[in-house]
Design a protein around this nucleic acid. Structure first.
Lengths: 342, 342
DNA sequence: CTTGTGACTGACACCGGTTTCCGTTACCCG
DNA sequence: CGGGTAACGGAAACCGGTGTCAGTCACAAG
């Protein structure tokens, strides 16, 4: 004559002969518990297959176990690798991942995110580039009272809230690689205006070129929007230059793929007639022909670190030593770079 | 002297001069409500920025507003397009998306999923291939009492629980296209054993070959696991055949990309020396050189349909006419197919 | 033999909504 | 004018857990 639904905490309490409060103590690992009682209750829990209702818990605890991933990202590979990194950490916790993409274009994006945060009040929020660069969104999180971590191409916040890489330096390394191969007419496909990553990467290019005494030519830099087609357009402009560049560095792999596409269309061999270097090391880089020399951006690793920060125990006021949350990107040398032809 | 936290339903009721019951009626869109009252309450809600606590609601309603996406998918493009499709529908509802990837390899996958379902009890569950083909998981959902939709390459369940495409027919069309171009030695890179999509696509190939009076040669079919590298290995085996095939149909784009890679390595021009056709039409297909002729699998559309099914009002017992949940894939002709050389 | 102390446990209110069960009022209709 | 119905209020219970605080018990100290 029992009700047939899920077992509740009352069922456990009754069967174990204790109060529901004690069961609650077992669940929450309260230290002041007789180990006999604990074991008895745990046995009943296991026997019944009892699982505490997360909604009820959330209500009573006034906190939930949700991590929200907010992003507006053009790149599928990147988003998925972030999800994988996060979930690798979350898997053996009681946290779950809520995915909430937004539309950067929309004028009410901020309100939309606010509504989302106020409604769900996730325990932690992960902000992906490019919207992670928006300070207003970070403010929103603190205002609502959610922990947050921003992922970015440079540190622009309290390190406790950042997981970042040093793109500028990584790009310098990539350009140096081209320089070392003998290239001088090195052009760049830059990312869209307003993106911090685009800015950092362009800075890296400019610094490397100036350090090599080559200076920076405005016409050598074509802007794209991180998508394939824009890489094609940019490459067209660059390859129309005369003299033609011998190498192109692209702010991300997808635009590099677009550049490769155009080179092919024009009958230019890569790397014989044109060297190309990308950024990100998404799977497309190794799938292309020739396989793309590119900068590996350790996204999944960064996502794991972010997850740990989000669910970590560190208190706010605590003067944490802000662990090493700067990750290094490394150049992956494949087959899209060669010495320039005489 | 108010408490500063979130406004509650009591605050709304007090300010609107109605009972909380009435506010609740407004929120839940009860039909027997004077429109004046409704508007007044809604005004207060808007004014206060009141948002009902979803946890409390879930607790009281004994249902929540979560859609879970369970998948174990090798293909980033596909997963992300599904997410986009789902979220397009969910965006203007009160539902949120919970992403829960699993590990197909793990022996306790089913238990893991059961724990997840019993804990979260999502309102709806979306099962992606390949695990959507697992009947035990579908049973699990009904057992737990969650709605579910399976996405697949053929209908193998009550149509009310399926969103499917007819891969077999689509592949027949692709092979016919190759046949029409004059190809006879058409090989296939098949998907992994045990995948329904792999089976269906292979069937399509075999049916088309037999219908053309060419018969099916076992050695003309090489198996892969849907990933790039396996496509390379399969292509190597196929291109070692003598006489060499003039065309290769691949069970998905990624393996087709691998085949293209190998062709390049061997100095074979595509499509001059070898025609290649893929399946899925993920972004890699159009980014490759030459752009890949492939079958467009309308994933996002299917995901949208699935979302509608999941949040739809249709009752279980209702003998629904099982709307058109079969989606057609279409051949996208790009540049990787040509007449075979004499 | 009290008394105090600390370890352990239970009764009860509470989280923020919904539902049930009346009860009231106003209005419409025959 | 009786009676039916639509629109809403009030009180209390409930969903399934957790916090507070008081109580019990064993045992050592006084």
């Amino acid at each position: 004559m029992k009700k047939s639904g899920q077992p509740t905490i009352n069922d456990v309490a009754r069967l174990a002969g204790v109060s529901k409060k004690t069961v609650s103590r077992v669940i929450n690992q309260s230290p002041l518990l007789n180990s006999d009682t604990r074991e008895k209750v745990q046995a009943v829990i296991a026997d019944l297959g009892y699982i505490p209702n997360p909604q009820a818990r959330a209500l009573a605890l006034r906190r939930n176990f949700l991590i929200a991933l907010i992003h507006d990202n053009p790149n599928a590979q990147m988003v998925l690798r972030v999800q994988q990194g996060l979930l690798e950490v979350l898997r053996d916790t009681e946290f779950e991942l809520l995915v909430h993409p937004v539309d950067r274009g929309a004028p009410d994006m901020r309100d939309e995110i606010r509504r989302f945060l106020e409604r769900q009040r996730p325990y932690g929020v992960m902000l992906l580039p490019p919207i992670s660069e928006n300070d207003l969104l970070a403010d929103l999180c603190t205002q609502i009272g959610c922990r947050y971590v921003r992922m970015g191409s440079a540190t622009f916040d309290d390190p406790a809230h950042m997981v970042s890489s040093n793109d500028r330096e990584a790009v310098r390394g990539a350009i140096d690689h081209l320089l070392a191969a003998g290239h001088r007419r090195i052009c760049m496909i830059a990312g869209p205006h307003g993106f911090r990553s685009a800015f950092e990467r362009q800075q890296g290019y400019e610094e490397a070129m100036e350090a090599a005494g080559l200076g920076v030519q405005r016409t050598w830099i074509a802007q794209g929007n991180y998508q394939f087609e824009s890489g094609m357009r940019a490459a067209e402009r660059l390859l129309d230059l005369s003299p033609r560049p011998t190498a192109i560095f692209s702010s991300n792999d997808e635009m590099a793929a677009g550049a490769l596409h155009i080179a092919r269309q024009r009958g230019l061999d890569v790397p014989e007639h044109l060297s190309i270097v990308g950024f990100d090391d998404t799977s497309i880089a190794s799938h292309l022909w020739p396989p793309l020399t590119t900068v590996r951006w350790p996204i999944a690793t960064m996502a794991r670190a972010a997850a740990l920060k989000l669910i970590g125990e560190d208190e706010e006021d605590d003067a944490e030593p802000s662990e090493p949350t700067m990750f290094v990107s490394t150049l992956i040398r494949r087959a899209s770079v060669a010495k320039p032809q005489a």
